[in-house]
């Protein structure tokens, strides 16, 4: 079973969200998602300053096998992208919850994070996916 930190929130499309406590969130893809994708060879990062709807297309992760879309877990503005992934996309596989983060977002409504899945609820989603 993949690793699911309890302090994170999750989406059905396999993103994780961390509340940074300063009005921003950090997001990435789950350990389950990186395992399913296989070796990540390219991450198309969102442009800083871009405003997204909840569920809007935020970027793309490409593995050797295929391309997968990334979706915004919350509506808001991109405030930072993890440009280290441009040269080292495999970091998403090696450290999905830490060095492999994708972007930081300033949600228009931070409270909406409470509507996302907790680790137990996401575990059920990931299980059905297998």
């Amino acid at each position: 079973m993949s690793n699911l930190p309890a302090n994170l929130r999750y989406t059905e499309s396999h993103e994780w969200v961390l509340d940074n406590g300063d009005g921003t969130v950090t997001l990435g893809i789950t350990d389950h998602a990186q395992q399913a994708l296989g070796d990540v060879v390219f991450v198309e990062l969102p442009d800083v300053g871009r405003t997204l709807e909840s569920g809007g297309e935020l970027g793309v992760i490409e593995s050797v096998k295929a391309a997968s879309d990334l979706y915004a877990p919350l509506a808001g503005e991109i405030v930072e992208a993890n440009t280290a992934l441009e040269d080292a996309p495999e970091t998403v596989n090696e450290s999905p919850y830490d060095k492999g983060w994708i972007a930081k977002l300033k949600p228009s409504n931070i409270e909406a994070i409470n509507d996302l899945l907790d680790a137990d609820a996401y575990a059920k989603v990931a299980e059905q996916d297998d």
């Binding site: 296989g38 070796d39 060879v41 593995s63 050797v64 096998k65």
Partner: peptide, 11 residues
Amino acid sequence: VQFPLGVKKEH
């Protein structure tokens, strides 16, 4: 399509 080694390492 792949084994636990993964596509890249299998390649």
